[in-house]
């Protein structure tokens, strides 16, 4: 059975959302899967968003749009407010240190304290994106974690060791979230 997963990663500029998306896409490619990524930015000078739409599949990908994401990662309030409604059928991971979740949304959501973990364990919030990526990869389940590690190591120009440590921390977090075998849609 062909499968397709949509991952929507979002935050504000400088958080490394795009690097997280590139790492996930490259990891998928290293695992002989197909991957696409669309990157877009809000046009606001302040308080805008960065959005990385990643699609991963075991076969050729038609639409590269993550219109009903299986996983939605929100690292900023603006991104959460803007895209949360898309994830009614998926799993939302928000960083509770940066996002105040609003009630009334459909779908599961969990607090992923990526920034706090990075600050406490590594002394820098620069690696919060990698903590988040680690959890996303864990929950996603279709991209081998060692491929994600290889991809992060390859793409980290600076702070490679911290990024890998952050990735491992994120992968180790047990928030109780997982996509069940039936989730995600056919390609």
């Amino acid at each position: 059975m062909a499968w397709r997963r949509e991952i929507l990663l979002s935050g504000f500029g400088g958080q490394g959302v795009v690097l997280a998306g590139r790492s996930l896409g490259l990891a998928a490619v290293k695992a002989d899967l197909e991957a696409t990524m669309l990157v877009s930015h809000g046009t606001e000078t302040r308080g805008g968003y960065v959005r990385s739409q990643v699609v991963i599949s075991d076969r050729e990908i038609d639409s590269p749009v993550a219109e009903r994401p299986d996983i939605f990662l929100a690292l900023s309030q603006a991104a959460y407010d803007r895209f949360r409604h898309l994830a009614a059928e998926g799993l939302t991971l928000f960083d509770g240190g940066l996002v105040r979740p609003s009630p009334g949304h459909q779908g599961r959501e969990m607090d992923l304290p990526a920034r706090a973990v990075a600050l406490e364990r590594l002394g820098t919030d620069l690696a919060a994106n990698m903590v988040a990526l680690g959890q996303v990869a864990r929950v996603l389940g279709v991209v081998p974690l060692d491929a994600v590690r290889t991809a992060v190591a390859e793409l980290s120009k600076r702070g490679r060791d911290k990024n890998l440590a952050a990735l491992a921390l994120g992968q180790a977090l047990d928030l109780g979230g997982a996509l069940s075998a039936g989730e995600g849609r056919g390609a």
């Binding site: 998306g21 896409g25 490619v29 991957a35 696409t36 990524m37 990157v39 590269p64």
Partner: peptide, 9 residues
């Protein structure tokens, strides 16, 4: 723009 700035394997 989605072709030139978009990412793909």
């Amino acid at each position: 723009q989605l072709v030139t700035d978009g990412w793909e394997a």
